[in-house]
Design a protein around this nucleic acid. Structure first.
Length: 472
RNA sequence: GGCGCUAUCGUCUAAGGGUUAGGACGAAGCCCUCUCAAGGCUUAAAUACGGGUUCGAAUCCCGUUAGCGCUACCA
């Protein structure tokens, strides 16, 4: 049974790229009857925050996919340290007493990137003596350079990979503070948690060569790896909080009124394809279609502008799901959107559902229900100028008030009965039905655009409709 | 600089030796229509560049260019 992990570090909010990595991990796991592990990689005590951790949980919970096991690296530091020391005892790592490169410029670093002179070959006695004397050091892995060693692995997306050990630098395992580095903590945990498959961003592709070496040093089997192309900005640069602001956060989409599943679906389409032209897919369809073979190798651009942080395709996808989603599942989501906007959701679930059905084909976001949909849920709404103009034609107000009066007295009030009442009135007065129809929509909603006027009557209800006509 | 990865319409992608290079978003137009949507139809829009290999290359190989990643006591 596959054991798969998603390992975010809590140094910011849940990033759109992280969310996608999580989703792909989740799909892979569920598809293969595996165990999904959420591991918080919080070994960088200087940059980790509790609010960031919370926003990651919030984001993941919003996606609604879930996980099976949960760990925090900060609670497992002993394990990492023990593994690092074991590697050291095997002679596969060494203490590097060189002070941190505080002011080292680029040229200097690049000319001496492999290791700090003298340190790999420091005699054990001297190393022990200096360590015992309290001299700070980082523990570095001793990469087998000059041995002709070629490190190889097969990536699930990028295929066969190889690199000369000569091209790998002596990376750190333990910092001078004694805390493990990412590489050490990650591999020690992957080994300890018996992770079988790693699916992560392509930024780790080069790191994998180091990790292969580490797994060997720990006598642990290396998990299978698959790397995902990165999500990038329209200008080709990496998505970053500093440069691109909130577009990189999943909360942007949540707050824009997206269905959680739309976001999942949208993210799946960035760097992956079912190969059969399908785009709008249910969770089950994604599960059925998902395969690492369908993952692309080129980075994918998230299409946004400063003016509009939402990718147009994502918005379209949301409108599609909004249309197809079971109304009963939509009700709580729309209710939440209404409440958030200070409106009161209708108590009658059947009528509420009907109104949602009437409106949703012209909405793209849950927010639209409280925005353009406001007149359907509240008596306080604005009369748009073009709607007012519709009412300012000769006789319009007078006829609509008359219509209101007739509807108030009518024996029944349904879409069909309203229609016949309206058409009778139009015929009687010798005006085109369209004048009354469009006028009624304007009067009832303050808008010229919207559902069929008769559906509007139905949704708004008799009392409100009559009142709105009377008050013209 | 070194090493690695990548390159099809503006964007997401399909086509893994033989296609008029397909679909979707977005854009434009038409149909439908009580308005607006939805829906249907149509149009514009791409194989980065240069060499090979081959009867035949978007597809395989090499080079160039560009982008991205790693090269931290970040992850």
């Amino acid at each position: 049974m596959p054991r798969v992990r998603f390992a975010p570090s809590p140094t910011g909010y849940l990033h759109i790229g992280s969310a996608r990595t999580f989703i792909f991990n989740w799909l892979f796991t569920r598809k293969n009857n595996g165990t999904m592990i959420l591991r918080i990689d919080d070994t960088d005590i200087d940059r980790n925050t509790e609010t960031s951790l919370q926003s990651i949980y919030d984001g993941l919970n919003w996606l609604g996919l879930g996980w099976d096991e949960h760990y925090r690296q900060s609670e497992r530091l002993d394990l990492h340290r023990r593994q690092a020391l074991a590697i050291f005892e095997k002679g596969l790592a060494y203490r590097d007493f060189t002070p941190a490169h505080a002011g080292a410029d680029d040229d200097e670093r690049k000319s001496a990137w492999l290791f700090n002179p003298g340190m790999p070959d420091l005699p054990r006695e001297e190393s022990d003596r200096r360590a015992a004397a309290g001299e700070p050091f980082v523990l570095r892995f001793k990469v087998p350079r000059g041995t002709g060693r070629v490190i190889r692995f097969a990536d699930g997306v990028y295929g066969e990979q190889e690199k000369d050990a000569d091209d790998v630098e002596d990376f750190a395992l333990l910092r001078s503070s004694g805390l493990p580095t990412y590489h050490m903590a990650s591999c020690a945990d992957d080994a300890d948690l018996r992770i079988t498959n790693i699916i992560r961003g392509q930024d780790h592709l080069s790191n994998t060569f180091k990790h292969i070496l580490l797994f060997e040093a720990m006598d642990a089997p290396a998990p299978e790896v698959a790397h995902l192309p990165l999500l990038i900005a329209p200008d080709g640069s990496k998505l970053s909080k500093r440069r691109h602001g909130p577009v990189v956060s999943v909360t942007t989409y949540r707050d824009a009124g997206f269905l959680p599943h739309t976001y999942v679906n949208f993210l799946c389409l960035l760097g992956w394809s079912p190969k059969d032209n399908r785009e709008q897919m249910t969770r089950q369809e994604l599960l059925d279609a998902f395969s690492l073979a369908g993952v692309n190798r080129a980075n994918a651009v998230v299409n946004f502008t400063e003016a509009d942080p939402i990718d147009p395709k994502a918005l379209w996808l949301n409108s599609q799901h909004l249309r197809a989603w079971p109304v009963e599942e939509l009700i709580p989501l729309v209710a939440a959107a209404l409440t958030a906007a200070g409106l009161t959701p209708p108590g009658d679930a059947a009528k509420f559902g009907h109104t949602i059905e009437v409106l949703r084909s012209r909405f793209a976001s849950l927010l639209d229900f409280a925005g353009r949909g406001r007149p359907y849920f509240s008596d306080e709404f604005e009369m748009q100028p073009d709607a007012a103009a519709k009412l300012d034609v000769p006789q319009a107000r007078e006829l609509l008030r008359e219509l209101g009066a007739r509807l108030e007295k009518a024996p029944e009030y349904t879409e069909a009965s309203v229609e016949s009442t309206l058409r009778e009135l139009a015929a009687e007065k010798g005006v085109k039905a369209g004048v009354l129809i469009n006028g009624a929509r304007a009067a009832l909603t303050g808008q010229t655009a919207g559902p069929s006027a008769f559906a509007v009557f139905d949704c708004v209800g008799r009392d409100r409709a009559v009142a709105r006509l009377r008050n013209l």
